[in-house]
Structure formats: structure tokens, C-alpha cells
Design a protein around this nucleic acid. Structure first.
Lengths: 213, 213
DNA sequence: TAGATTGTTAATCGATTAACAATC
DNA sequence: TAGATTGTTAATCGATTAACAATC
């Protein structure tokens, strides 16, 4: 009965699960062997029922009265997120934002390893940014094939975003993390995660102005 | 009858409306005086009914058969988003990410004007990043009061995020754009927009791995 | 006029929340 | 044992989609 069908988790659930992982690794809870949905919910202003439902999507089971075995729950979430082994990625666009992302230490905790940076600007090629040598786009295909690269990160200006995406698609990559303010055109089997600051700014703007009304 | 009650728009609607604005300003449509929901939907892979419903939240009305008057719709969206006048913001944390945000040209199109940058590092104070002099946190209160600052942007490391938020709350600011991987503790009347890369990474990871299942 | 398009009201869909039996 | 907690099944809530009358 353990091969129960687990339906695909909603995006909101995935976000929360990533947050549970962080809470479970916080020092407040590291001393506990068992953690309940109530413990987690309290730290995040959520309702215990939601935490339980979310954890269900990972396929992990707790024990009535005790809760969830902390270490095993962490392992289950890590598996659910696909963060067991380091995941290789490449980055296109070694500008200010690209550099910031290359330098972000936090990704190590999420098994993300940006193995190479690419840029079309000849002046940048060959320079070293955050420990990675910047390479020409012509070597993208080769690098992706050689390492087992899971997805590409696009941090180029708007006008160059689509062609960067096209190059990534050409390599056979199935995921793109898009930091440019452009809706990319890609085949249906390629997943794009948009990180468009304009949207967040819009939400914040409306919420703030709405509060006075 | 024009003082009809418009309910608060869902977050997903706000995101899409920001995207409609971009489409309406694209060269493809600038020649058109009238734009229909179908026109917009087609450009974004959405259904016309959703576009019409969303536009309804802005309070703007179209004309049967013709569609929406393009220039007026843009104006209505800009008002809805609170982007009529430049909105002042301050930024705390002049590191790599902070610099990238300070240098992002696209914000001009969204009426965002980051008027000042702050940092606690004495070595950074006084230096100029992307045209803004970095100031000490002790002058935050004064700068916020003098200008009409709408919100604060937090780009400090995780451990400093909460104290940065506390300082912003102290100034009376009602909005925070939080780029740190920390859930901030703020009063109920302060809006926080989280920009946690870890969440997006989680979503992308699950979607990619899920595709093979 | 006929057809395209709007905006409203109703139906559907999916996510969140509640209720509750099972249980260590 | 009694009480806390899980996981399932049902109810509620809100967003999306459909249906359709109104209209330029």
C-alpha cells in the first residue's frame, strides 16, 4: 500500500514545504527528535491542518501523538524538492544581477551549484566573477553536455533574453530560471520559472496604496 | 452609479495586470487606438474572459465591439498600480544584490525611485554605488521623514534582516520589499513582499523533476 | 444589419479549512 | 487510560471559466 498515488503538489504547497525545511533546520527545533505540525505552524503563522496536508504531499507519514520524526521529515522534504544531490546549473549574463546570483552563498543549502557563467560581451569573457571564469556563449553546448546540467539561469537584459533561452533550449535543458522581464517562448516540455521584479513591485504597490482606502 | 464597489483584486490578478501594461506599451499594439481582451490574451496565452475580468478590477470599462481605448486603459492600470507619480524608496544593504537593484534601469518604467542606500559597514559608507552615496543607518529616520518614502528594500544578509526591518518600521514606513531569506516580524499594518529565491528554486526543482515521472 | 466584444451572473474547479475516526 | 496528534473525508471558500444578454 506504500505505492499510493500522490497527486502533484500545488505551487503554494511547494513554497511552504521549502519554508518548513528551513524551520526544521533552525536551532529552535534541532534539539527535538519529534516535531508536530503545530510546532511548524506556530513558527510560520499557519494552521496545523495546512502543514499536515502539505507534508502529506511529500509522502512522509507521522505518528499520532508524537508528530513527525524531525530528521526523517527533513530527508523526505529534501527528496521531494530534488535537493539530495547538488544540482548543476549554468548562468547566462554576467552583469550585476548575474554576479550577485553567482555570489549568493545560500544556494549551497539548496543543492544548487552554478558551474559556469556565460556572456556575449568579449570584454567580460575570460574574466573571473565569484570564482567562475566567464565563457563565450559558443561553448555553452559543450559545457552543458559534459556536466549533467539541470537548468539555466538567465540574467541578461530584456532584448537578449529570448535568444539566451533559445540557446538553452538547443542544449536540451528542461528548465529555465528567468530573471529578465520577458515572457519567454519555449517548447512545452521546458519549464520556465519567472522571477520578474516588476510583478512583485506591482503587488507591493497595490497592497500599500490599498491599505489607506 | 460610477461609485460602484470594486473588491480587492487577488494577487494573481495584480501580477497579470502589470503584465497587460507591458503588452499595451509594446510596439505591436502602440499603433492601435482600440485593444480588445482577445488581443491581450493572445499575446500572453490567456483566455479573453480572464483578461476582461482582471481589467474590471481596475474600474475601467470598454466598449462592446470596439474593446478598450488603449491610452485610457494604460492610464487606468497605472493608477490602479499606484504608478502615476514616482514612488520613493530606500534600500538597506549595499552588497552585490543591493547594487544590482540600485542599477536596474527597468524600475524607471514602474515609477520606482530608490532615493538612498544605507549600509552598516563603515567602509562602504560614503562610497557611491550606481549614483547614490551610501549612508549610515543612523541617518535613515531623517532621510525617510524628509522625502516621502513609500517603502524600504532589504538586501542585507539573513542575520541582519530583522533589525533592518525594525529600523524601517520605526520610521513609520508601511511597506517592505524583502530580498533576504528570512520571514520578517512586523506589525500588522506593514506590508511585506517576500522575494525569496529559495522558494522559486524549490518550485523549479519540483517541476523539472516531476516532468520525468 | 450581423458579428464582435463587453460585463454580469452562474457554474466549475481547485485549494484551504473543518470535522472526526484512528492511534501511540 | 486520557489526551495529543495524525491522516482522511467532507465542507467551505475563492478564483477561474462558461454562458449569455446588452450593444456599438
Amino acid at each position: 500500500m506504500s505505492n499510493k498515488q500522490i497527486p502533484c503538489a500545488p505551487v503554494a504547497t511547494i513554497r511552504r514545504i521549502a519554508e518548513y525545511l528551513r524551520v526544521l533546520e533552525e536551532c529552535d527545533l534541532t534539539s527535538k527528535e519529534w516535531v508536530s505540525a503545530t510546532d511548524i505552524a506556530q513558527k510560520l503563522d499557519l494552521k496545523p491542518i495546512q502543514v499536515r496536508k502539505d507534508i502529506g504531499y511529500t509522502g512522509f507519514s507521522g505518528k499520532p501523538k508524537k508528530g513527525y520524526e524531525r530528521v526523517k521529515l527533513i530527508a523526505s522534504i529534501v527528496t521531494f524538492l530534488g535537493w539530495e544531490q547538488p544540482n548543476q546549473a549554468v548562468l547566462i549574463g554576467a552583469g550585476a544581477l548575474g554576479s550577485a546570483i553567482l555570489g549568493y552563498k545560500g544556494f549551497k543549502d539548496h543543492s544548487l551549484d552554478i558551474i559556469a557563467a556565460f556572456d556575449k560581451n568579449p570584454k567580460k569573457i575570460g574574466t573571473v566573477i565569484r570564482g567562475r571564469k566567464v565563457r563565450p556563449l559558443t561553448s555553452l553546448q559543450q559545457v552543458v553536455k559534459k556536466a549533467n546540467v539541470l537548468f539555466g539561469i538567465i540574467t541578461v537584459p530584456a532584448v537578449e533574453a529570448q535568444s539566451a533561452a533559445d540557446l538553452l533550449v538547443e542544449t536540451g535543458i528542461k528548465g529555465i530560471w528567468n530573471f529578465s522581464p520577458v515572457k519567454l517562448n519555449v517548447p512545452a516540455d521546458v519549464t520556465v520559472q519567472r522571477e520578474d521584479l516588476c510583478f512583485s513591485l506591482a503587488i507591493l504597490s497595490v497592497k500599500i496604496s490599498g491599505q489607506s482606502g
